[in-house]
């Protein structure tokens, strides 16, 4: 048994949506979810990161989880473009629920309507949530 396993040399490219619909604080699942996103990018997959529902709050500036000894996820979100993950979208309707505007978001993300997101979701191969 080895840690990496044997991988085939050529893998398909699939469209993978990663849906963040809850906060990234409070438990380790959000952090571990971001690890999957980065791994998908490392495998050269077509990665889309979608923030919707309560998850839009994960993009707020000035989060200070360090005060509870929790890990700050913002450096990871800041790193997404470095991994060539540039398709980051936020659901417009969820932004409105929380009265958020685009300039209140900590990272660059496209604000897209629920119906347009749905059109894109339909063409995805796999959807991930946590």
């Amino acid at each position: 048994m080895n840690l990496i396993g044997t991988l085939p040399l050529v893998l398909d490219v699939k469209t993978l949506f990663f849906i963040i619909n809850k906060g990234l604080q409070g438990n380790v699942c959000g952090q571990e979810f971001l690890d999957i996103i980065l791994m998908a990018a490392a495998f050269d997959q077509k990665v889309v990161v979608l923030f919707e529902g309560d998850g839009v709050n994960a993009l707020l500036k000035n989060q200070q989880p360090e005060c509870l000894n929790l890990k700050n996820m913002m450096p990871v979100l800041d790193t997404l473009p470095v991994y060539d993950i540039n398709d980051v979208i936020v659901e417009k309707e969820s932004m409105e629920v929380y009265g958020l505007t685009e300039n209140e978001l900590a990272i660059k993300a496209a604000v897209v309507s629920r119906s347009d997101i749905k059109k894109r979701l339909r063409s995805a191969d796999h959807l991930f949530g946590f």
Binding site: F17, L121, R122, L127, G129
Partner: peptide, 8 residues
Amino acid sequence: NKPVRSCF
């Protein structure tokens, strides 16, 4: 059906 979304 494709895709499949698990909501939990």
